[in-house]
Design a protein around this nucleic acid. Sequence first.
DNA 1: CAAACTTGTGCAATTTTTTGCACAAAGAGT
DNA 2: ACTCTTTGTGCAAAAAATTGCACAAGTTTG
Lengths: 345, 345
Amino acid sequence: MAGLSDIARAAGVSVSTVSRVLNRRAGIKEGTRQRVLDVLNEMPHTARGMEALRRTGVIGLLVPELSNPVFPAFAEALETRASRAGYASLLCNTRAVMSEQDYVRMLRARGVEAMIFVSPAIANIDPSAGTRPPRGYYERLLSEGVHLVFVNGGTPALEVPDVAVDEQLAGYTATQHLLELGHSRIGFVCGPSQALPSRLKQAGWSAALEEAGAVADPNLVAHAPFGAEGGGQAMSELMDTARPTAVLCSSDLMALGAMREARRRGVSVPENLSVVGFDDISLASYCAPALTTLAQPIEEMANAAVDELVHRLDPDRPDRAPGGHSRVFRPRLVVRESTAPLGTE
Amino acid sequence: MAGLSDIARAAGVSVSTVSRVLNRRAGIKEGTRQRVLDVLNEMPHTARGMEALRRTGVIGLLVPELSNPVFPAFAEALETRASRAGYASLLCNTRAVMSEQDYVRMLRARGVEAMIFVSPAIANIDPSAGTRPPRGYYERLLSEGVHLVFVNGGTPALEVPDVAVDEQLAGYTATQHLLELGHSRIGFVCGPSQALPSRLKQAGWSAALEEAGAVADPNLVAHAPFGAEGGGQAMSELMDTARPTAVLCSSDLMALGAMREARRRGVSVPENLSVVGFDDISLASYCAPALTTLAQPIEEMANAAVDELVHRLDPDRPDRAPGGHSRVFRPRLVVRESTAPLGTE
DNA sequence: CAAACTTGTGCAATTTTTTGCACAAAGAGT
DNA sequence: ACTCTTTGTGCAAAAAATTGCACAAGTTTG
């Protein structure tokens, strides 16, 4: 088993320097530090204490939930790209009993080199809710040398690269599509009002409506928890009050719930109600009627996120160039069977 | 920062004993070892080397894939129960680029105390495929003190507790249900032929058929890869050849694929074709027609698995008693809209 | 352009951890 | 009951890691 002295010899420095590197003490030139670390990573079996500094090749993936299939889809896409680059992924489900912060702490202790946050708490929860990580929380991570990337939830306040779909454009495009089909009473089956993505989609919805000379009546927006259940609730509310001829939904899952509610009430889709989802989960094309939706380019986004990370983790890797700090992807309209021209109703 | 001597004092042993415990050397009485470890877990910040032996409160969850929603569902249920018991979960997706073994090695290095395998490679892949972990692989883990539990894929060859649904009963019950509706040409949209769960369901299907005096014609079984895509393929094959009036499927996902294929061919479900799925993923009730299926009691199974683990991890916890090494759960028939009495066709 | 600082590293003293050896306690076999 | 193992622990010597101090090399300032 190699000891400090072996490493010192191999790196051409003194034992004390190695010791200092290992203990993260200040006063070591970056070049020397790097040389020691490199030697460390070569050595097959080294003693205690060193393990933590060693490159682990492990990254953490944090998703808010698993019940909406988009998140497993993101996780799988991220994981695939990461393993191709030689990194193993650990997946954490953050909105369960343990919070995002709990998981971050744990991952940090387990030697994770970087973390990718999908829909991170920082960007998506209302500041007033109080459950958001305290200010400076992500900064601390950054300063500890943990690399971060946000997916769908970046914030300009932080020096963290992020990739995201243009949620507002999604709302706009969906509304536009329905407008073109002749609809005018277009409702929005929306997630909780604090959720930023839903707010952005709503902005797109209003914009399209106003551009078409219509008014974005607040009664046409129904808030409910995310999930199919919530979609049903919001749909039910809309049908009782504003009676839209078409709706867009915050997610495919909500759209599925909305469609079931419509079916329960004997309103047939798309003849009497057009429905547009968001995400394009793989099941969207398997339900009947197949769901028209705005696809997130999940694979491209995942690739971009992982590549950005890898670029920072291994700066001298010849790989693809990073696309810059903040990459926005366009959602793609996938027209299937759940939308149709406004009929005689 | 506490050193060996502090721990030795607190535990009432000599420094050398503590050193030996920390280095996993032989020749330490279990009681003494435990006492040292306990003290270790009390101490707030201890030195290097000790971290690895410290209880981490982290368990690993290994699932074969994420695209079939049952696995995220299991993961979420397991995770919830585990966090209630004070354990954090790390989720790994094992059939991607990295294998189950890669992940196990990595988790081990990251200090997880136990692992729960959902549909582990050992039980579900054909031995001849060669991709299965080598013999003694799980034993080694066990001997290193890592606790294991299998979900849906235990094996009597190993001293590992397992919880599972009765796959054969599922096949039997599904077939029985279709038989009662008057069907006799009952097909099976089956996963890959090496997959054990599919083989067991097939056994249940044959048994029910033979019990009813019918023959289990092998032409009524179509194999295809798991997933909705595969379900469509297998369905297509059956419709071209054996023309069943009803089918059961290896999973809800395959059932969804089968239903879409039927729809594509203008065969309406359930009027001209009854379909039974397996799993009861939450989306099963949201598709049209809502899917009749055999539900795995996911939450109960997850609870049983976690409880069994916790019982072993913390033997003196007052918790619920373990249900024994091997627990089998009955699948529950959930009749919805995708099955109907055999009509005039 | 030198004095005053700052930064980075090695040396050696100090502290901490590991290990060889001895010895006590607990069974096992005459 | 009396060896003879086997097993578990402590003591003290040896090995390894940490740190105070000094000094060299590079930077800034007057």
